[in-house]
Every structure is written in C-alpha cells, then in structure tokens.
Computed example of a mutant assay.
Amino acid sequence: MSTFLLLSASMGDGHDTVAAALAERLRADGHQAVRADVLELLPGRLLGAGLRGSYQTCMRYAPWVYGGVHAAFLRPSRGPGSAPMAAAAGPGLLALVEQASCDAVVSVFHLAAQTAGRLRSSGRLRVPSAVVVTDFALHQQWLHPGNDLHLCLTPQIADEVAAATGRPAVATGAILGTRVLAARKAPQQAGSAAQAGVPVERPRVLVSAGAWGVGSRFADTARALTAAGFAPAVLCGRNERLRRRLSLLPGVEALGWQEDLPAVLASSSALVDNAAGQTALEALALGLPVVGFRPIPGHGRQGVLAMAELGLTRVAATPHELVRELADLIHGPARPVDPALFDGDPAAELARLVGAPGRGA
C-alpha cells in the first residue's frame, strides 16, 4: 500500500473533481490518498485566497482580461513553462510531503505541477512526482521536466508532453467519479432520449456555465434554444445572481449547484459547453452529444476547439449553427466516443511509478 498526495486547486470545481475521482480510484486499489490545495501552500494563506477571488471576479465580470493573461502566460507551447509562484509554494509542499509520509506527489493543477517539478529537479523532493493534465489544449505551465510522469487525456496530448519535456507521458483518459461510472454502466438511463428511440417533443438541452456560473449571453442562448423547440436548462453553478435572472425567462430551467450532476445529465439530450472541462467529459461518458458555443476566453476557447478537432464534440459559431448542430446530433444516429477516453487506469500507472502493486497484481 502506498500513500499519494493529490495536489489540486479550488479554481472552479473541475480540478478538485478530478482529484476526488482519482482518490476514489486509488483507495479502491488499496492505497491511501491525501488531498490538498496548492493555493493553501502559498505563504500567508491570503495570497491563495486573493488569487482565487481575483480569478473568479475576472471570469465573471471581465473575462477578456483573463484572455489576455492566458495569451501572455498560459499560451499553448511545446516548451516547458516557469511559474514564479511555484517557488513560493515549495516550502509548504515539502512540509506537507513530510507530514503525510507520502510515496508520491500527484499534481492536478498546473501551478502544482510547476511547484513539484522545480523541487524534484533540484533534488529537494525525494519522492516521485506525477502530473494529471486535465486540459485538452496543452499549455506550457503544465510542463516541467522535473516531473517523472504525465497522465494525459489522449495519446496526442501525451506525445506533445513527451516531446516538450523529454519525460514519460501516457494517455489514461478522463478520470471519472463513481457516480458517473455507475451511470455509465446503466446505458438505459444515459444519453439522448431521442437516440434511444423515445419520442421527445422538446428535448432538454443543458447549457453549462461551470461551477462559478461564468460565460457570456446565456439568456440569448436560452431564448434561441426555446424558439427552436428545445427545453433549455442552464447549469448556473454557484452563481445565484445568474440563476435568478435566467429563471425569469419563459420556458427556461435555471439550475443551481447540482450535487448529482450525472443524474441531471442522464435526463437530458445534449450539452452546450463553454469550457471543455469535466462537465463535457462526463456528458460524453454518459452518451450525450456536446456542442461548444460561446466559450470562455483562454483555456476554454482553446479546449473547445481542441475537443472538436479530435472529433469528440462540435463547435457552433452562431445561434443558428448551434440549433442546427443540436438537431442533427439529437435526432440523428448516435456517434459513440472511443471508449479508450474513459477506460484507462490512472491508478495503475501511479502504482507502477512508485513500484507498488496495482489492481489485479
């Protein structure tokens, strides 16, 4: 049995969701998993909270500013990055590794990857360091040659990482939680009702705004879907102001934070996505077609385009295109996603990294 320190960041909910799902996988294989937030390792604690708060405010009210920051510091690149704050989080990470007596550090956020990579390359971090790359559009802050292993969503991303760092990278696919995996094993409950042969007068289409309820022109999108004969349901996350505003629109279902998102997905016919994050992956795992529309700037836009290029989703540039794509996907033949995207075993790869037996060993 090995102990893994999973280092995530509460920037939205996607990274924490992946870390929680990975912890479930590791524990099921008999290992211990300790979760921590890299923002809490920054000195003074207020620095991490300030970063989180400023990022949330920026994404809600001035997303174009984040787009500029992404272009300047998080741009796609084939070379390793350098995060100045990684040095500041280093002492906290070393203290946590010693306290937890862990056998490996697993970064599920790019600042964590930079922090662990710096410490590993300098010899101060004496246990292996792995990185779970959660983005479809790779950027340089995920890359540090000090890390021992990268776990990636697809073989294409793994090849990019290996070429950029000179270090091992493998494709383990999406890391899904137990609720999604359970729903995935019940195909009669998942996917498009229309594709399953069930008549649907007004197919329910989810519109995702992420955990923080960020994005643009949700009311316009909902109106366009309603006018086209769909029943839009907007996932507003924890943005209560957005939920209240959208709840006033006729024919629109405005949803707050969902504790059981797989159940909501399973009762819907399609997802309109703006971030290429965990919600889109869970939708695909449950058989829902996904259309990218009005993506958030930076990693959202890059990821939406990357998913479409891989043939996993489609992209619409206008409300007319969105309606057309949804009609084709919902009422047309099902287009299954390669099961390799969901059937990988990241826990086994991590066990191999530390020389521990995995499932079935």
Rank of each mutant, 00 (worst) to 15 (best):
M1S: 12
D13Q: 08
D13R: 09
G14M: 01
R25Y: 07
L26F: 03
R27G: 00
A28V: 03
H31A: 00
A33K: 05
R35K: 09
P43T: 10
G48K: 06
A49S: 10
R52F: 03
R52D: 01
Y55F: 15
W64P: 12
L74V: 04
R75E: 10
R78T: 08
G81P: 06
L93R: 00
L94G: 02
L96G: 01
Q99R: 15
V105C: 07
V106L: 09
H110Y: 15
L111R: 06
A113D: 11
L119V: 02
L125G: 03
P128N: 09
S129V: 04
V131H: 02
V132Q: 04
V133Y: 01
Q140M: 00
W142L: 10
I157Y: 09
A158N: 11
V161F: 02
G166P: 02
R167A: 05
G173D: 06
A174S: 14
L181Q: 13
A182G: 12
R184M: 15
Q189N: 07
Q189G: 03
A209E: 02
A211H: 05
W212D: 14
T226K: 15
E240D: 14
R241G: 10
R244A: 10
G256A: 02
W257C: 02
P262K: 12
V272Y: 05
A275W: 14
G277E: 05
G277F: 03
T279R: 06
T279H: 07
T279G: 04
E282M: 08
L284S: 10
A285P: 06
P289L: 03
V291W: 06
F293E: 07
Q302K: 11
T318V: 01
V323C: 08
L326I: 05
H331D: 13
A334Q: 14
P339Y: 05
A340E: 12
L341R: 12
P357Q: 06
A361W: 11
